[in-house]
Structures are given as C-alpha cells and as structure tokens.
Simulated scan of single mutants.
Amino acid sequence: MKEQITGKRFLWVTVLNLIITFVEIIGGLFSGSLALLSDAFHNLGDSLSIMLGFFAQLIGKRPETERQTYGYRRAEILSALLNALFLIIVSAFLLIEAIKRFSRPSTIDGPVMLTVAVIGLLANLISALLLHKGSKGSLNIKATYLHILSDSLSSVGVIIGAIIVTIWHIDWIDPLLTIAVAIFICFEAWPIIKQTVTILMQASPKLDYDSIKQDIVNIEDVNSVHHVHAWMIDEHRIIFSAHINVCDLPISQVEPIYIKIETLLKDKYDIGHVTIQAEVGRGIDETLFNTPADKNEDQ
C-alpha cells in the first residue's frame, strides 16, 4: 500500500533543511571547507525539492476530470524526475569544484568543520526518519528521501574528513570526500531518472505477456488475443488494453468474459485498469502486439 507523507512531516523536514543550510554556509565560510559549502547548497536544493514533492503529492490526489481522464498521478513522477535531475546537476557542480580545489588547496579549520558536520548529520537523520516509510511506496518521496540520505552520508564523510584534518592536517581530504559524495549521489539518482523516463515514455511494464495471452485464451469462448497495449500511469498503476476474438455471442454473454479477464489480470498480474474489445474474426491472425496500423506501415 502506498504510504502518504503528511504536510506536517514535510514542513518539519523543510525547516530542518533550511536550518542545516544556514549553519553549513556559516560553518563553511569560517572553516574554509568546500565539502560544507557544497553540502549547504545541496541542502538548499533539498528544501526546494521537498516542497516540490509535497505539492506534487497533493496534486496527485486530485480526481479525474474531463481534461485529465487518468487524473494527476504523474505529477509525482515529474517531481521525482526533476528531483533526480537536480541531484545529477549538483553532483556535477561538486565534482568540478572539488577538482579545482585540488589545484588550489586551502587551509581548513578542522574543529569548526567537525562541529557543523555533526549538527548537519543529526538534523539529516531526523529528516530521513520522517520520510523513510513513504519512500518505499512513491518514487516522488523516494527521490526526496534520497536527497536527505545523501546529505546524511555526506555529513558522515565530512565528520571523518574533519577528524583527519584536525589531527593530521591533511586538507586535500576535503575535496576527495566531495568527489566521493558526488559519485554516490549520481549512483542513487540514476535509477530514479531511468524509471521515471520509462513511465513518461509509456514503455511497457515488465509483464509475462505470453503467460497473459495463454491465461486469457484459456477462458471459455476466447479464441485469440491481439492488439495488446500496456503502460503505467505511475509506479503503481498499470493500464492494459487488448482485443480478443470470441465466438459469435450476444453482448450479455460477452460481459461475463470481460469480468473474468479483468479479475484474472488484477489478481494474477496486479493490473488495475483493463479495457477489452471483443471481436469475432477481425484480427484473429494478428500477433500479440502487431496492430492493423503496423501492418499497413510495413506494406
């Protein structure tokens, strides 16, 4: 079941991120730490993405309308895509600045860096806990949650780096940690981008179509299945349509067949929205995905 995140939780996470941002900007300026300054701007982006995610969730709850017959569920998919893209952009910025810092090393105040990093870690952990459950059932919340999680891991890295800087005065550890965090962020964001683009491009979900065809044909009076289309509105709802060839029956006898197919697809394949068109002889020789339009184009 999809877990919804309340407005109160979003508000607390946003406030915590704004506080972290302010503290890390001040700490980064005073300590000279690129990792802290980069994480500060990352947290600022998190605050914006959290608000975007919350409003997307509200929009996604709106009912279907004449202009939006499938509702607004893809608002959350768009939000997840934007959040993940922002993560990639931030990572690129971090990588560039870290590489520059290697060629222009600067002295870093380890104790200040350490104190600020600990504060940031505690606030990020609280935010991550607030969003954890919702991240399991929504790409939108997952993208926001990954923002927070990446910041938490970044804070851990900064803490380790601050200890090294304080004890051994190895200042180049700061840009090295920045590069490591940037790579981690890209690694976590890429699957979200891939999945959201797949949904927006209406690519077919991973289903056993041969098994679906066989199960439908095994229903009494169904002779064949063709003109199949399947896509996803969001990461939870699959839309399925198909033409079936049946015996020459009155509509009153075809309707129970529709019900059997809908029940089969919902119970066995978790397909929530099914549209079936019954035919007697039309298209009976077509393959599962080969439509009449496809045949005309081939000719």
Rank of each mutant, 00 (worst) to 15 (best):
2 K>T: 02
4 Q>G: 12
4 Q>V: 05
4 Q>N: 14
5 I>F: 03
16 L>D: 11
17 N>P: 09
18 L>W: 07
20 I>L: 02
24 E>R: 12
26 I>E: 03
27 G>S: 01
29 L>N: 03
29 L>P: 01
32 G>H: 06
32 G>A: 08
35 A>G: 14
41 F>L: 11
41 F>P: 00
43 N>R: 03
44 L>V: 03
46 D>V: 02
49 S>N: 00
51 M>D: 04
55 F>I: 07
59 I>K: 07
59 I>A: 09
59 I>T: 10
64 E>A: 01
65 T>P: 01
67 R>D: 00
71 G>C: 15
82 L>S: 09
88 I>M: 13
92 A>T: 02
95 L>S: 02
97 E>D: 09
97 E>M: 10
99 I>S: 02
99 I>F: 07
101 R>I: 13
102 F>N: 14
105 P>K: 10
106 S>Y: 01
108 I>A: 08
110 G>V: 08
110 G>Y: 07
112 V>I: 08
114 L>I: 04
117 A>Q: 10
118 V>A: 15
120 G>L: 08
120 G>N: 05
124 N>K: 07
126 I>R: 08
128 A>C: 09
128 A>H: 06
130 L>Y: 14
133 K>V: 09
138 S>T: 02
142 K>E: 12
148 I>Y: 02
153 L>Q: 11
155 S>P: 04
156 V>F: 00
158 V>T: 13
159 I>R: 10
159 I>G: 15
160 I>N: 13
162 A>C: 10
166 T>H: 03
168 W>D: 12
170 I>P: 10
172 W>F: 14
173 I>S: 08
175 P>N: 05
177 L>K: 05
179 I>V: 04
180 A>F: 08
180 A>P: 06
182 A>N: 11
185 I>T: 05
191 P>Y: 13
193 I>N: 14
196 T>R: 07
196 T>K: 08
196 T>L: 06
197 V>I: 06
202 Q>Y: 10
206 K>P: 03
207 L>S: 14
209 Y>R: 06
210 D>F: 00
212 I>M: 11
215 D>P: 00
216 I>Q: 02
218 N>P: 00
220 E>Y: 07
220 E>A: 09
223 N>C: 12
227 H>Q: 12
229 H>T: 15
230 A>K: 09
231 W>N: 12
231 W>I: 09
234 D>P: 15
243 H>D: 03
244 I>S: 05
251 I>Y: 03
252 S>H: 12
252 S>A: 13
254 V>G: 11
255 E>S: 12
256 P>S: 11
257 I>M: 14
258 Y>G: 04
259 I>Q: 09
262 E>D: 01
263 T>Q: 13
264 L>R: 07
264 L>Q: 09
266 K>I: 06
268 K>I: 02
269 Y>F: 15
270 D>V: 01
273 H>I: 05
273 H>D: 08
274 V>S: 05
275 T>C: 04
278 A>K: 03
283 G>T: 00
284 I>H: 01
286 E>D: 07
288 L>C: 07
289 F>N: 13
289 F>Q: 07
299 Q>V: 06
